[in-house]
Design a binder for these strands. Structure first.
Lengths: 132, 132
DNA sequence: CTGTATCCCCATAGATACTG
DNA sequence: CAGTATCTATGGGGATACAG
């Protein structure tokens, strides 16, 4: 999995590794949600806000800005009153959908196994705690 | 990307979505590093500690325990003195290598584009700040 | 060797209020 | 409508010390 770039330098396994960077890119609560919503086409700020539900304006703006900075999303502001802003996945952004899809598919396939494993683990822990 | 399980219920896009769960699984600083190291075969606690370099004992133990709980890793303690503990990817754990590999490959392929995009964004921001 | 226990810090998310 | 600005606190993570 992790590319050769860091597989050869064990103690630098942290920051410069492409995989780390890729994960840092999407490993927060909202990023993938937004990418997913935008994969269906351009959306306005308010629309995204409504659809995500639970996200604060601060986090929405912050996450969208990060995506824009990373070149995954474009931001187009229309100089109107009231203002209108449209966000859209870039070509680069679209290329991320594939890998994320793979991860999603994995999750869908193995979710029940994960839940089973957790249940089993917690059960054993509980028993161990009781016998102590 | 995000599976149908949540694509139909926009406002529940948060917790129950399989993709979210998959990401939560691996979206921390150390998890993927450990999975990567273990993908090469079973390893002892100390070996992992040395190879990751920079991780605290607390986080190493905590992360390994989480992986064990999720059924991605097995933990085998040998009742010896001094103690020996070996960690190994489970069959389920191995199935995760593929999707993570896809993400890694994406990162490797597009890392330069990301860096370019960031540089460009930051440059524009700087210019905007100066002209203000 | 393989952990636990404890303290502490600070980054970050959330809430709230305000603005062009 | 689409954001900023500001405040707060919470809990995740590091450092350290200790234990079986």
């Amino acid at each position: 999995m992790v590319s050769k770039a860091c597989s050869l330098a064990p103690n630098v396994l942290s920051a410069q590794c492409p995989t780390r960077q890729a994960l840092d890119l999407i490993a927060d609560k909202w990023t993938t949600l937004l990418i997913y919503l935008l994969s269906k086409g351009k959306q306005r700020y308010g629309d995204l806000h409504r659809q995500v539900g639970g996200i604060s304006q601060k986090m929405l703006t912050q996450t969208l800005r990060k995506l824009e900075r990373d070149g995954l999303v474009t931001r187009h502001v229309y100089p109107e009153v009231p203002p209108r802003t449209e966000y859209e996945l870039t070509k680069l952004g679209h290329t991320l959908i594939g890998p994320l899809g793979a991860l999603c598919e994995w999750a869908g396939t193995h979710l029940s196994e994960l839940e089973q494993a957790r249940k089993r683990y917690d059960h054993l822990q509980k028993k161990a705690a009781l016998s102590a």
